[in-house]
Simulated assay, not measured.
Amino acid sequence: MAYVPVKGGEEAILNSLGMVAEERRGDPATPELTIAQIRQQQARAVDRVMAEGSLYDPDLAALALKQAQGDATEAAFLLRAYRTTLEQFATAPPLDTARMAIRRRISATYKDLPGGQVLGPSYDYTHRMLDFDLMQDGPRAPAARAGTPVDAHMPRVPDLVANEGFMEPALPPEGDPAPGDLTRQPLGFPAGRDTRLQNLARGDEGFLLGLAYSTQRGFGSNHPYAGEIRAGEVPVEVVPEELGFVIDIGEVTVTESQMITSIKGASGENPRFTRGYGLVFGHSERKAMSMALIDRALRADEFAEPRKYPAQDEEFVLYHSDNVESSGFVQHLKLPHYVDFQAELKMLREMRAERQEASQ
């Protein structure tokens, strides 16, 4: 549908765009936000936009947030639209999160684990009280920081459990096929786990959080343990055809969550733990944890579990977790539906008239 029936629509739209620009800027007497300020001081919002926009570029994500007036869904839409203009020049091998330069690493399953618990930057340890000091401009005294160095290598907790034979193995699919690419191929069903994880990684954080919560409130049969959550920088490598060997092209900040879930034992096999996995751009523990819980719920068929709950319904989860798709479908209701509505109104009048005639 389009605004074809609207008279004078072009002028009205131009005026609307001008009002958006004016509203975005705000009072000219107030200093304008810079991209650097948004990128550094609104980093969690930037991380969310990069994840849901399927593009790792903090500067562009900050620009999208500025352009969208802080609307994360609109900003993700802008970033995805820009991504479609980019050429894919190489495919990177899988990130090795065991090589992560860790800023934060915690586990709810072991108190004393190799490498230790690294609290790092987190709101988990803050009082949920407004800090009115932040309303004041100017420099503040730096917060105290521990000087203990972080171990260069920290084994992942699920791997420790797997070494004892108590964890399902993490094996590639038969034949180790190349993973699909949702940014270039449409979503189809049944979807492989690689496709599901891609979809969840760029899904709406709020929607995933609600689904993950549902699995713990009687709409799921697995009791999760936070095996490990780690956040930090991981090197990205490619193998250029003209060189034939691996080169390091930079690093990305990611958050990885591995949930250890209920004990399962197939016929003839020893009981063992199962796992759910989440990996997202930036520092986003809530998103990564939600992703891991839903990943495990969507694996119901692998463990011969009945699919009874929303989080176990592959089509429901994957289609509706995409906030760009969802937003577009909801917002299309703002387009003119004059003919449709008048047709239904006419039908309603005729039905009421027929009923009145029948009652006389």
Rank of each mutant, 00 (worst) to 15 (best):
L197Q: 11
F207C: 06
P190F: 00
L211H: 12
R193W: 04
A201F: 01
G192E: 10
T195E: 05
T195V: 12
G227K: 09
F219Y: 15
F219M: 15
A226S: 11
L209W: 00
F207T: 10
N199P: 00
A226R: 07
L211A: 11
A226Y: 06
R196A: 09
A212C: 14
R193C: 01
L200A: 10
L208Q: 14
D194V: 07
F189E: 00
Y225H: 15
G192R: 06
S214K: 07
D194N: 07
Y225T: 10
P224V: 09
F189N: 01
R193D: 09
L200H: 04
S214I: 03
G210K: 09
D204Q: 05
E205I: 07
D194L: 06
D194F: 06
L209N: 14
G220H: 03
L211G: 15
S221C: 07
R193K: 08
L209V: 09
L197T: 06
D194W: 05
P190I: 02
L211T: 15
L197Y: 09
S214D: 13
P190W: 01
R196Q: 13
P224D: 13
F219H: 08
F189R: 00
R217T: 15
G218V: 14
E205V: 10
R217D: 08
G203N: 05
N199Q: 12
T215H: 03
T195D: 04
G220Y: 04
A201W: 00
L200G: 04
F189I: 00
L208A: 11
R202P: 00
T215R: 04
P224Y: 07
G227P: 12
G203H: 05
L208E: 07
E205G: 06
E205K: 10
R196T: 10
H223I: 15
G210F: 01
G227A: 12
L197N: 07
L200W: 02
P190Q: 00
Y213A: 15
G210R: 13
Y213Q: 11
D194E: 09
T215Q: 03
L200Y: 07
R217F: 13
G206Y: 10
Y213E: 12
S221V: 12
N222L: 07
G210Y: 01
L209P: 03
A212E: 05
S221W: 04
G220A: 10
R217S: 11
S221F: 03
P224W: 04
P224G: 11
G218D: 02
L211C: 06
N199E: 09
D204A: 11
A212S: 15
D194C: 03
Y213N: 14
A191G: 02
A201R: 02
L208Y: 05
